[in-house]
Amino acid sequence: MSLLAAPPATVKRPIMQPAVGRVLQVVKETHDTFTLNIEPPPGDPVARFRPGQFSMLYVHGVGELPISISGDPECHDYLTYTIRSVGQVTYQLVTRQPGECIGLRGPFGTAWPLTEARGKSLLIVAGGIGLAPLRPAIYHVLRHRGDYNRLVVLYGGRSPRDLLYRKEFAAWGMLPDTQTLATVDYGGVSWRGHVGVVTAMFRHVRMQPDETVAMLCGPEIMMRYAGRELESRGIPASRIFLSMERNMKCAVGFCGHCQMGPYFVCKDGPVFPFTQIKPYLDLYEL
């Protein structure tokens, strides 16, 4: 039985076809992590994103991967990605030279609830590379500072040399109504900051749980424990959000790889309210 033809959309790039972006700059953040600025085609919708969303980045001859956007959502001249070199595609991405082209699809997925969080305090809990998808949310809050109360950024990393955006992070901590705390699992002799897991930082946070929205991104174990801990400290699960990671090949719900129980992480996520994702976080090998 034939289908009624859908009204043709305005000229639109096929969903699996990347736009061509040009590498403007590659900045080394840590020994294995780099930040790339990519210039999209002028006026291309690929550059209009909401904090928390991701793109599919493609390297010719190598492949395609989902990478969170880590730059300023109000900058449309280039897109920023912070990438940890852990495999073939990420290695090829971070070793691009300015001027080279890569493919971009997106943006995809759900965003941090920044509209809903207006008038409230924000508690940002990041672990490792998880600070990258949260940075656009921080930029948004800093640009619209009057819309929010306190901003607290907790950041856990493996060791001091693994921490991202260190100068920027220190600068955020100097701003009024802003508190930043970084902690590492392994501190060297010269590290004068906190040593311990990020959940141990909650006791040092100055904010009211009843008017706080928490946004979490990091290793799944960290988010699971942090989510529970925040709940026990009075932040309701409905105001805790976390960003999930799963294997993604298409980013639009066709490939099936990112399924997590009833959800397709690529389009139902990556940002989920804790209430929604909590029942599935505890199921091993779901």
């Binding site: 190598v62 492949g63 395609e64 991967l65 852990v86 495999g87 073939q88 595609v89 990420t90 290695y91 294997n247």
Partner: peptide, 8 residues
């Protein structure tokens, strides 16, 4: 450890 990400 492992083969890195699965993207191709």
């Amino acid at each position: 450890s492992g083969k890195g990400e699965s993207g191709q």
